[in-house]
Structures are given as structure tokens and as C-alpha cells.
Amino acid sequence: MIAIILIGLAAGCASALMFASVISRTLISVLLLYLASMPLMVAAIGWGPLSATVGGIAAALGIGAIFGFAHCLAYALTVALPAWWLGHLAMLGRPVGDGAEPGPHSLEWYPVGRLLLWIAGFAVLITILTLFSVSTDPEAIVAAMKRSVTRILAMYQMEADDRVIGSAAAIAPAMIASGPLIMLTINLWLAAKITATSGRLQRPWPDLKATTLPPMTLVVLCVAVAFGFTGGLLALAAKIVVGALLTAYALTGFAVLHTLTLALKNRGLWLTCAYVVMILFVWPLLSMVALGLADTVFGFRERFMRTRPPPLPTS
């Protein structure tokens, strides 16, 4: 118990320092801010949710004592809560079969797709809190978006009329939501890797190629798209939900890509080229969104795996 508490306090201190580093306004501080939840995730995965709870509370109280209640609440909702809950879910399992041979392989672990859906939910929460820190008036938020778009275009010495700027500002909330989702996903993956390397990961590594979102996710996406054409705060929140879910489908699209390329001889080269193209040009990521959505509807991975020969016996 003492070791669990000490590990949690150490993780909380590291997370709080990474979160507070943003006051330095340096480039490295942005990276540290994005990775602030990882120490608590490591504690939750390797030493249990109690360890992350202790670390999160201690870090939130420390930040609140130094920077005030607003920063304490922001840390608790955007860093500590996602880290604790996702770490808890990652290690959540239930027995399957008759339980004659207890162990990690006799448990059914929480599905990766549902984990990804929780990450999308936290991304929506973080994005809404970020935008509401600017203003709770949707018109003021849109105006701030337009100013940001104008500054970005000016940085690249590009000019655009008001219609283009307005269109970019309209879809900006959906694009912003993708950032927290990707960073939380990376944080959880890194935390699990670190825990596995240290020998504290008490579960098998999941098959990420099989990641699928729950079927009702597509229904929620369609409803959010419909509400996005309304107005006010409801439309703003709907756009954020759309952006988060489309990003989640993009990640499942990558899982589909990794599955469909299993039969290629130079699979590593093809995957590397695909990742490089998407990082350099960004817009090809839309193809991953389309692939993830298409797999949900048509089941490409399931059909492909039916054509694969069964695995060879291990003994």
C-alpha cells in the first residue's frame, strides 16, 4: 500500500510539473502539457487506479494552491480524470469460460474500441472547456476562430476572402477536437508500453488491428451531424462531437489498413509510405476516415480474415 501511494505521489508530481510548464511559453512546454496525463496513466495501469487517484488529487491540490482554483479544476478535468479512468478501463477484465485456469489469458479485457470511444468523449470535454474558457457566447467563439484562422493564413503569407475564413472558422471546432483525442491515445499507448517494459503490465497486449467502435457510434455521429446544422451552443457542441468521432473512425481506418496489408510482401514499406504521405499532406487522412466508416458498414476486415488461412498450431 505504501508503495502504491508513493508511486502515485511521484506520478502526480511529474504530471503537475508537466502541466505547469506551460507558463514558460516555450515549445517544449507544449509537448510536456500534452503528455501531462501519461505519468498518471502509468500509475493506473501498473499500480492500480488508487495510485492514480492519490497522484491526481495531490497534483490538483498543488496546482490549485499555486495557480488558483480555475487551474486546479482544469487540471482535474482535462488531465487527472481522463488518466485515472482510461488507466482503470485498460486493466478492466472479467473471467471467461469455466475459469479453471485463472490468469491474464482467461480474462476478457475491456475492448479497445470502447476505450477509443471514451477517449473521444474526453476529447469532446477538453475541447468544450477550452472553447468555453474563451467565451460562452457562440458568436464570440466564432469571432475568435476567425481571428485565429486569419493569423494562421498571415503566417503563411496567404490571403483569403471572408467567405473562406468563415467556412474555416465553422469547421474549426471539429478540427480542434482531433488534437486531444490523438494526444490521449498516444499517452495511453505510451503508458501501456512503459508499463509493459517495466514488467508491470498484468494483461496481454491487445490486437490493435482488430479495434472497432461500437455500432451505435455511427448513429451518434449521424445525430451530431444533424445538430451541427442548427445554431448556437448546441451546434458548436455537435461539431465538436463530429470532429472527435471522425478522428476515432480515422484511427480505426488505420487498423483496417494494417489488416488489409497483411498479405503484402513489402508491407512495412507500404505502411511507411502511407504514414509519410499522411503526415506531410494531412488531407489524405480523410481516406482513413472513409476507410473506417466503410469497414463499419461493410465489414472489410471480417471478409478479409475469412480468406486468410488458419494459424499454424503452436505445439
Rank of each mutant, 00 (worst) to 15 (best):
V297I: 14
P138M: 14
L291Q: 06
T53W: 12
A226Q: 01
S29V: 01
L33M: 06
R203E: 08
T53L: 15
H71A: 10
A140H: 10
R163Q: 13
A16K: 03
G48Q: 10
S37Y: 03
A274C: 11
P310C: 07
L257V: 08
T252C: 14
A143C: 05
P310Y: 01
V223H: 06
V96R: 15
A123Q: 04
P82F: 04
Q157T: 06
A36K: 03
L312I: 03
K239F: 00
A196S: 14
A70K: 10
L213F: 04
A160Q: 11
I119A: 14
A244T: 09
A290Q: 10
S135D: 07
A274F: 12
T78S: 15
R308N: 02
S37E: 03
L264H: 00
S135C: 08
T130Q: 15
D137C: 02
I126R: 12
E159V: 05
G8L: 07
A169L: 11
A43H: 01
G292E: 11
L271D: 03
R267E: 08
I182Q: 12
S178V: 04
I194H: 07
I119D: 10
T252V: 11
A76S: 15
R306P: 01
A20K: 00
K239E: 04
A237H: 11
M155P: 01
L262I: 07
A224K: 04
T252S: 05
V276F: 07
I23F: 06
G121F: 09
W270I: 02
G299A: 15
T212W: 00
I194D: 09
G97P: 03
L6F: 10
A235L: 06
N187F: 11
I186K: 09
G55Y: 00
Y275G: 07
I2M: 15
L213M: 08
L116K: 04
L89I: 03
R25L: 06
M158S: 14
V96F: 08
T272M: 14
A140E: 13
L92M: 05
A255Y: 01
L251D: 00
A52L: 12
G231V: 03
A226C: 05
L35N: 00
P206N: 04
R94A: 12
L213I: 06
P95R: 03
F122P: 01
V149N: 14
M41T: 08
A238H: 00
N187I: 08
A294W: 04
V42H: 04
T78Y: 08
I57H: 15
I4Q: 15
G8A: 14
S178H: 13
T212C: 09
F298M: 10
T252L: 04
I128Y: 09
A255F: 02
T195I: 11
S106F: 04
T130K: 13
I176F: 15
P173Y: 12
